[in-house]
Design a protein around this nucleic acid. Structure first.
Length: 255
DNA sequence: ATGGCTACAGCATGTAGA
């Protein structure tokens, strides 16, 4: 089973890139982030005839938005994290397929909105931890894929790419990430690249050419799924295309 | 550390991204 996380930075701009990616790598399930469109604005017709079906969780105002695109049957089990019911951010979608639960997520960046914006990020991470723990307590095979907006360690960003005060690298951010992984999840890309895992994001400008990037798009696997992990790679070719997203797709293979 | 990008809303710049 081939799983993917891909922050497209506007699906209306990036649908051609997505279709080329699907042709290149034939994934079973793709989780998209930063759709930047309403649910009804998702260009679903472009997937007609590809064998892929989309379930979209869009948002008004041109921000956020997540979706799952899959060629295998699935059931949507959640379109938001529990808690903060008034939460209008479209950042989470969870599906069930073959007894496995898969979550696609777009974690808050945390650099905007001042102290409150950062606290929202930390609360969101704690809510995610609660969902992850519940699945482990129920012995449900579970994977979380998405744009976590967290560089877990200093090895996960190019030197000087971010100031130490950035919300992606602050100690509290990394501690909240570890509070999730320490429940018993495997950081899949890191597990297969113990020395230096590849970056998944390069800011627009001259950063990609000199590999000044960040590793912020992750797949966290419960033990059952980690035992099935056979491969993972960053589709760097996608980032080298014309008018690319600033993120590259990240591919994970499970036996 | 940003905005030197890019995208969006909406029509001028402001906000957000990371």
């Amino acid at each position: 089973m081939r799983l993917v996380s891909f922050n497209v930075n506007s699906i209306r701009k990036r649908m051609p890139h997505l279709k080329r990616f699907l042709d290149r790598h034939s994934p079973d399930v793709v989780f998209l982030q930063e759709l930047k469109c309403k649910t009804e604005e998702f260009p679903a017709l472009d997937l007609a005839g590809t064998g892929y079906k989309a379930h979209v969780v869009g948002q008004h105002g041109g921000r956020n938005g997540v979706a799952v695109v899959a060629k295998i049957p699935f059931t949507v089990v959640a379109e938001a994290l529990p808690g903060e019911e008034a939460d209008a951010h479209a950042r989470y979608v969870e599906i069930e397929t073959g007894g496995i639960h898969l979550a696609g997520l777009y974690l808050p960046n945390g650099n905007s909105g001042g102290a409150e914006g950062y606290q929202y990020k930390l609360r969101w991470m704690d809510r995610l931890r609660g969902v992850a723990k519940a699945h482990l307590d129920n012995f449900t095979p579970f994977a979380m894929l998405g744009d976590f907006n967290v560089c877990p360690t200093d090895a996960d960003l190019a030197p000087g790419a971010l100031p130490p005060t950035d919300a992606l690298v602050r100690p509290e951010t990394r501690a909240a990430f570890r509070a999730i992984t320490n429940l018993g999840f495997t950081d899949a890309l890191r597990a297969l690249n113990p020395g230096a895992a590849p970056y998944t994001y390069w800011d627009y400008g001259a950063n990609f050419e000199v590999n000044r990037g960040l590793r912020i798009d992750h797949a966290l696997l419960s033990a059952e799924l980690a035992e099935r992990l056979t491969g993972a790679f960053v589709d760097v070719a996608a980032r080298a295309e014309e008018q690319p997203s600033d993120h590259a797709p990240v591919v994970f293979d499970l036996a």
